[in-house]
Each structure stands twice: as structure tokens, then as C-alpha cells.
């Protein structure tokens, strides 16, 4: 298949994939048997997927995490769950399409599903505000988490946003308050919560739906206090240094897990989730199911203490005798 967005480091792979496609088309048109050639090319593509993806820089992972063909929340919801029923609105101001919420079943068990949703084309991107939630979005998410708590359903959250929306209306309606309240309420929510960073974990905008018992992250997803461009603009005085900032901030799945921020890295298919969304979704499903099963066994008091302790323990400081 053709990719309209070309990442430089993927070029050798994209060229092989293009050739495969051409050969397939030729074969379909009955222009001779090219099976052997195709097999060789496929093998080459597989090798390239492994070799390119084994040595990605943090900045390259940022670009993959933002890839426009990467599976989004609704894609995962479609692959993972049955009977998803989307429900809308924060009951105070409006419905924020940057976050989708609703009940669904995971292998027959009812769960509450929330997902930060980006748009696939310009029209949908505008509707979804590029996945950047407004205060009503955080309040909507919290409303459904409380609903899950009330009916004893676990919460599954897909995180994928460049950040909370920085706009005039967002400030007028209390973006900071909305996020702060979620951080507090989620720490007290009396039902298991599993969050999965599927693409971009953009700062407070991500954390505002990210206080969970388990925080999982896809292999090529990132999670950061500030975008590499933003950090570079402030500390290096130019956004050009984003690759340096991406490295310094330690935002990759591996780094985050080493730092104790994420609990598990979900491997992506060779060549990234954007090449094989179904493969990615099946890995995500296995991980979520396993985590939910483990959490369901914990008494709620223990679960809440463990959740508090998990975030309580985050941070590195020194305590010298003075």
C-alpha cells in the first residue's frame, strides 16, 4: 500500500513496498508469474522493517507516534471491543469530540472505554480539534469514569493527544481546573483503571486522563512533559533542536518504563502500528485483558492504596542530612 506521508528513515522500506505493489498489480493483470520475485522482495521488506525499527532515535519515534496512518482510539475500540455504545456530553457545557466515551464489552465483560481521538482527514481533524481536549472534554471523561465507578465497571483509556487545547475558551472555562480535578478524582476512583498511550502522550493534556492503576505504552508511542519542539524553543532557543530535546527528555516507551512511569511496553508489529493496525490491536488487547484480570482480583481498598503509592513514588530527589 502507498503511504502519502514519507518519513525519511523509512524510505528504503517504502521503495521496496512500492515495488511489491507494482509487481502485484502486474501479476493481477496477467503479465506473467512474478511469485519468486515477489517473495524475495517481501523478505527484503521484512528485513528492512526489523533493521530500521530496531535503531530508531527518540525523534524518529515521535514522528511515528504522530504518523497520520497510525491507528487511533476509535480504531482500537473497533478492533478490541464488542457492543461499543458511544455516549456524549459533559452535562454542563457541551460535548467534546476530542474524546470519545462509552460502554463496551471486552470478551463479554462490560467496561467503560475512553479515548482521545485525532482526525484522519482535515474535516475530521477540525471536528476533533486535532485530538486536543477542552475543559468540557476532561469533565466529560470524568463523568463517564464516575458512571463506571457507580456500576462497578473497569475503565480503559486510550491516550493520544499533543496536549490540552490552549485557547481563549479553554481558559475561560477553566482548563487548569478541569485537569486538576481529574487528577484528584482519578486518584480516588473506586474502580480499576488501565490507560494505554497509543500515540502521543502530550503533557497535562494526557495526564488529565492518565492517572491509572496500570499505564501501558505502545513501543513507538511517546509521553512527555512538553513537546520536543516546545522544549527546544525554550531551552535551546530554537525548535530546530527538537531531536536533541527529544533525546534529553527521555520520552520513549523504553525510557519511560525504566523511569517507572509506564508499567509495560506493548510491542508493535515490525514496521510499526501504522503498517499493521490489526496486529497492533491484538497485542493491545492481550495486554489490557491481562492487566484487567489482575486488577479485578484486588480488593478496592488495596487497589486505591496501590494507586496512590504508585504516583506517590514517582520522582527523583536527594535527601542529604543537613
Amino acid at each position: 500500500m502507498a503511504y502519502e506521508v514519507e518519513l525519511d528513515f523509512e524510505k528504503p522500506l517504502l521503495e521496496v513496498e512500492k515495488k511489491i505493489e507494482e509487481l502485484r498489480a502486474a501479476q493481477k493483470d496477467g503479465k506473467g508469474d512474478r511469485t519468486a520475485e515477489l517473495e524475495a522482495l517481501k523478505k527484503k521488506a521484512d528485513q528492512l522493517k526489523v533493521s530500521i525499527y530496531a535503531n530508531l532515535t527518540p525523534w524518529q519515534r515521535v514522528l511515528i507516534a504522530r504518523h497520520p496512518r497510525r491507528p487511533y482510539a476509535l480504531d482500537y475500540i473497533g478492533y478490541l471491543f464488542q457492543d461499543f455504545i458511544e455516549l456524549h456530553g459533559d452535562r454542563h457545557f457541551s460535548d467534546d469530540p476530542a474524546v470519545v466515551c462509552g460502554f463496551a464489552k471486552l470478551d463479554g465483560r462490560p467496561v467503560m472505554v475512553l479515548g482521545q481521538q485525532k482526525g484522519r482527514d482535515m474535516k475530521e481533524s477540525l471536528l476533533r480539534n486535532f485530538g486536543m481536549m477542552n475543559p468540557e472534554g476532561y469533565r466529560k471523561a470524568m463523568r463517564f469514569m464516575h458512571l463506571a465507578e457507580k456500576f462497578g465497571r473497569p475503565v480503559v483509556i486510550f491516550i493520544d493527544t499533543m496536549g490540552a487545547y490552549p485557547g481563549i475558551g479553554a481558559e475561560e472555562r477553566g482548563q487548569a481546573e478541569a485537569i486538576a480535578r481529574n487528577l484528584m478524582e482519578m486518584s480516588l476512583l473506586r474502580t480499576p483503571i488501565v490507560a494505554v498511550v497509543i500515540g502521543e502522550g502530550g503533557s497535562g493534556g494526557a495526564l488529565g486522563v492518565g492517572v491509572a492503576d496500570r499505564v501501558l505504552i505502545l513501543e513507538n508511542a511517546v509521553y512527555s512533559v512538553i513537546s520536543p519542539e516546545g522544549c527546544a524553543a525554550i531551552l535551546w532557543r530554537s525548535a530546530k533542536f527538537a531531536p536533541e530535546a527529544a533525546k534529553a527528555l527521555r520520552i520513549t516507551a523504553k525510557d519511560l518504563t525504566e523511569l517507572g512511569i509506564t508499567d509495560e511496553v506493548i510491542p508493535e508489529p515490525p514496521g510499526g502500528a501504522h503498517r499493521d493496525p490489526v496486529g497492533a490491536a491484538s497485542a493491545v488487547k492481550i495486554a489490557i485483558r491481562r492487566q484487567l484480570e489482575a486488577l479485578a482480583k484486588q480488593p478496592i481498598g488495596e487497589l486505591l492504596d496501590a494507586r496512590y503509592g504508585k504516583f506517590r513514588a514517582m520522582g527523583v530527589f536527594t535527601e542529604a542530612a543537613s
Binding site: 487528577l183 486518584s187 495526564l207 492518565g210 492517572v211 512533559v225 520520552i251 504516583f311 520522582g315
Partner: peptide, 14 residues
């Protein structure tokens, strides 16, 4: 302090 500083928001709010 990267992501660790972000997590202080969750820690203090909890």
C-alpha cells in the same frame, strides 16, 4: 526533569 516533573501533578493532586 522531563516526565517525572509532569507526574508531580498527579502526586500532589492525589
Amino acid at each position: 526533569e522531563g516526565i517525572l516533573s509532569l507526574m508531580q501533578m498527579a502526586k500532589t493532586s492525589a
